[in-house]
Amino acid sequence: MSDKNEDYYYELLDKFLAGNITKQESTELRLAAKQDSNLQSTLSNHIEARANIRIAGEADLKKKLMSAYDDLPTKSEKATTQINPFVRWAAIAASVIGLAFGFYYFSPNADPTFQLANHLTEVPALTTRGVQANEFLELWGIAKLNYQNKEYKETIAVCDQLKAFPNQAKAHAGKIAIFKGMTYLQLKQYSAAISHFNQIPENNPLANDAKWYIALTYLDSGDIEKSRALLKEIANDKKHYKHSQATTLLKQL
C-alpha cells in the first residue's frame, strides 16, 4: 500500500464521517479495508484521531457557549422587563375589548362556528416491549412532538418511518392509522384522513374513535349531511365515549 493510496482512503473515510460519501466510494473503502489488514488498522487509527479532534473541538466549543450563555436573558429577566405605561394601558384596554368580544362570540345565542381544534383529543399513547421497542417509541415521541408543534407534514414523514419496525407497526396499526388520520385532518387533506380512519375494523376498540373522527372530518370539510348522519349514530349510542359531545354538536348544526 503506497502513501498516496493511504491518503486517498483517509479522504474517503473523512467523507464517510461527514455523511457525504457515495455508495460507490463506500463500497470501495469497505473492500480495500477487508483485503488489507494493515490498511484496516491504519483506518481505525484515523477514526480514533478524528474522534480525538471532535472531542477536543466539542470541549472548546463548550467553553465558548458557557461564556455566551451568561449573556442570554433569564426567565425572570424576561418577565420583569420594563413596560411603557402607555403600552400597559393599551394592553389592558385591548384585553377588556377582547373579553367582551369573546363573551359575545361564545355565548349560547351567538352564531356557533365549528372549531376543529376543540374536538381533536390527545394523540394515542403507546406502550411496547421488545428489542427494537425503544427506537420505535422514540420515533413515536418525535412524531408526537411534531404534531404538538403543528408540523404536520413532518409528523406524517416520521409516522411512515415506523414501518421500519414491522412487528411493532403491526401491533399498533390501529393507533398509527388514527394518528395519521388526525394529522391529515389537520392538513385539511380530508380524503386521506378518512381513508386512514376507515382502516380501523369494526371489532377494533379504536372503531369508536374512528367513527368520531370521520364525523369531524366531514364537518370540517363542509359535508354537513354526512357528518350529521354519523353524529346522530354516536349521539344515539349511549355507550359511545363521545355521546354527549356528539349531542352538543348536533344541536349546533
Partner: peptide, 13 residues
C-alpha cells in the same frame, strides 16, 4: 458517536 461506530463496522473492525 454512532457515525464513528458505523465507520469501524464498515471497515470490518
Amino acid at each position: 458517536t454512532s457515525v464513528e461506530k458505523e465507520a469501524f463496522n464498515w471497515i470490518g473492525q
